[in-house]
Amino acid sequence: MPDSAHSALPVVAVFTGDPAGIGPELVETLLAGEVWRSRARLILIGQRAALSAPADVLWHDWPGLRDAAYPPGIADAANGRYMLEGLAQGVDLLQQGRADALCFAPLNKSALRQGGMTQEDELRWFAERMGFQGVCGELNVLQSLWTARVTSHVPLKSVSSLLSAEKVAEAIGMVSRALRASGVTQPRIGVCGLNPHNGDHGNYGDEEQRIIEPGIRLAAAQGHAAQGPFPADTAFVRAIRAEGGYDAVVTMYHDQGQIAMKLMGFEQGVTVHGGLPWPITTPAHGTAYDIVGQRKANAQALINAFELAVRMAHSRRPAPAPLLTKETSP
């Protein structure tokens, strides 16, 4: 590729994730392919000894952890600290203008907490690390279908009390902006109801009329059109129809969307940390401790996450950032 064409590509930082999980294997598979070379410039965050990488890959090292050993399949404070430090390096590259997007391999939440993460999940950790106080939320992507949710990692008994028209509108707006950033110029968004049969005119609950419908109207007034609410048991049927389908479905709680998405493609799904100042993507599956080192891990979700990070980086920054050299350390 000519130097001028190469310099026009976005820069994506790729972190190998949990060193005790399948992350290094997944990243190795990504690097073994040739497609990424024509799509982006890549900066690799991880342990050099943990995977085979092409000689021309640019590494970003940081002191103290490059030579540490992490037993496979063990979630403890040591690999939790490693993951947090690796993510911090990725955020630094974004904030310094050296990377346009971050893609990371799966993490283990138990290890993250043992390693010092006090936030409910890595999305909130990212927001705090960046000093970001705006609206953000987890988005899930399977091929061309996206989902957003109004509530996330909370007890099911708390969902109704946490819903509001403003939060419904925020979720619609967040996924609408993310879709546009990924190249969808006119997002088609459907919204789920909360109760069985959409509440059956109030017989099984009234959140649809009292909260969700006003939220859809509020989002429309803010420039983010959506349709619904639809009964949750048919919303995804509507979404995947060849004609008249949707680019995204907004759900009211975690499993309302996650069950459908994982049934449709467990090893392909991508999580986007929506609303943050920079594109951040990761596979939607976990660290698969039970198959570490067996070369059974399917890398498709990581490849999809990388591809999506590239698309979002393209739309965000037309001019590339300067690259690190091969041996740069902070």
Rank of each mutant, 00 (worst) to 15 (best):
A299F: 06
A299V: 09
A319W: 09
L308R: 13
Q294E: 10
T328H: 15
P322S: 05
Y289N: 02
S329D: 08
N298M: 12
A321I: 08
R316S: 14
Q300T: 12
A284V: 00
V310E: 05
V310K: 06
A313T: 07
E327S: 12
P318C: 02
R317E: 03
R311M: 09
R316M: 13
P320C: 04
K296H: 08
R317Y: 01
A319D: 05
K296V: 06
V310D: 05
A297F: 05
Q294D: 10
A313M: 10
E307P: 10
H285V: 00
A288F: 01
R317S: 09
A321L: 12
F306S: 13
A301G: 04
H314W: 14
A288P: 03
L302M: 08
R295V: 06
M312P: 06
A301D: 02
L324I: 11
A297Y: 08
A309L: 07
I291H: 03
R311P: 08
A301E: 01
S329N: 12
V292R: 03
Q294C: 09
A299G: 07
A305D: 10
N304D: 01
I303W: 12
G286P: 08
R316N: 14
P318S: 10
R311C: 12
H314Q: 15
A321V: 15
L302N: 05
A297R: 06
L308M: 12
R295S: 14
H314V: 14
L308V: 10
M312R: 12
M312C: 14
A313S: 02
G293R: 08
M312K: 14
R311K: 13
A305V: 07
L323E: 09
D290A: 00
S329A: 14
A301P: 02
Q294H: 11
A288Y: 01
I303Y: 13
I291F: 00
S329Y: 13
L302F: 14
P322V: 03
H285G: 03
H285I: 01
P330T: 01
G293N: 10
P320H: 00
Q300D: 11
R316L: 14
L308N: 08
A305G: 06
S329F: 09
A288G: 03
Y289F: 13
A313Q: 13
N298K: 07
H285Q: 01
H314A: 07
T325K: 12
V310H: 07
P322Q: 04
S329T: 15
E307V: 11
A309E: 09
L308Q: 12
R316W: 13
A309C: 04
R311V: 05
H285L: 01
T328M: 15
A301Y: 01
K326I: 09
F306H: 07
P322E: 10
Y289L: 02
A309I: 08
K296T: 03
L323Y: 09
N304E: 06
N298Y: 05
M312Q: 14
P330A: 11
R317W: 05
I303T: 15
T287Q: 04
L324M: 13
V292L: 08
T328Q: 15
K296Q: 11
Y289Q: 00
A299K: 04
